[in-house]
């Protein structure tokens, strides 16, 4: 077997990653375009960023979106972590198949169906739609993603530490907070981030479940995009991309560092034992 990457593998990596990144790079470049015509380069300018900051509708929508994403990601992380514990720990119980079905189905369910069904539920129970209904809708599908992420973390962990604590008489809830949670924390954080960005991103479900006064950023972007591509939208998109990229990279560095530290502690503990 040849060692090192073959030309075929290098080519497919280069082509594959250019395909993934080129559109985003072009989008970012053209947000600094002086010209109003999106595809004609008219020199470097940051005027569209200024324009964007003066667009009150856009700023309002961004504020709604951030609050929705924060609330729904937090609730989804709590519920999703509980669901992951159930999937990984509760063994067989009646209704388990339905439960895991309800966790996996939203991952692939078309958004139009999720949106429509939740809207009809809110109408049926006479719930006024707006800010909170979007949060509930986002929580529902995001918690499934959190459950999957946390569950994969739970699957690869040594239960003996947890069992030792329980055997020594530590109450289950305290064991969870003192032992289980710190170990699965990277998964929980990744789950929260994922839930946050999913909510930040969602257009379809928010459009169905929103009400008067709660317009999210994707809804605002969508209605402007339908009228045509503008450098201002490029500027908004660039900021969002930058925000998410920095967040994801920072989280991954922090969790990796924690992970290395944890493994070092484990090794030290094992050496002492």
């Amino acid at each position: 077997m040849r060692k090192g990457p073959s030309w075929f593998n290098v080519t497919s990596l280069v082509l594959g990653f250019s395909f993934l990144y080129l559109p985003i790079v072009l989008l970012v470049i053209y947000s600094f375009n002086e010209s109003k015509l999106v595809t004609v380069w008219g020199g470097f300018s940051t005027k569209w960023y200024g324009e964007m900051l003066r667009n009150q509708q856009l700023l309002d929508a961004a504020w709604v979106t951030i609050r929705v994403a924060f609330a729904s990601a937090t609730i989804a992380t709590v519920l999703g972590t509980l669901a992951a514990l159930v999937l990984a720990r509760s063994g067989r119980f009646s209704g388990r198949t339905l439960f895991s079905g309800m966790i996996y189905a939203p991952l692939v369910m078309p958004e139009v169906i999720l949106g429509l069904s939740l809207l009809l539920l809110f109408v049926a129970i006479d719930q006024a739609r707006g800010f909170w209904t979007i949060i509930i809708a986002h929580t529902t599908f995001a918690m499934c993603y959190v459950a999957i992420v946390v569950q994969s973390r739970l699957a690869g962990f040594d239960r003996s530490v947890e069992e030792a604590a329980l055997d020594l008489g530590c109450p289950p809830v305290k064991t969870f907070f003192a032992i289980t949670l710190p170990i699965i924390l990277p998964g929980v954080i990744a789950g929260w981030m994922l839930a946050f960005t999913l909510s930040l991103d969602d257009l379809v479900i928010a459009s169905f479940t929103t009400g008067p006064g709660a317009t999210t950023l994707p809804m605002r972007i969508y209605s402007q995009v339908r009228l045509g591509v503008t450098p201002e939208i490029n500027a908004v998109c660039t900021l969002l991309v930058a925000f998410v990229t920095v967040g994801v990279i920072a989280t991954s560095i922090v969790t990796k560092r924690q992970e290395v530290q944890r493994q070092r502690d484990m090794r030290r503990a094992e050496a002492q034992a």
Partner: peptide
């Protein structure tokens, strides 16, 4: 990483292309 960046934005980027 692209999976984390907005779906809507990634679709929008193709309009200009």
């Amino acid at each position: 990483l692209p999976f984390w960046t907005s779906f809507l934005i990634r679709v929008y980027a193709w309009i200009g292309i």
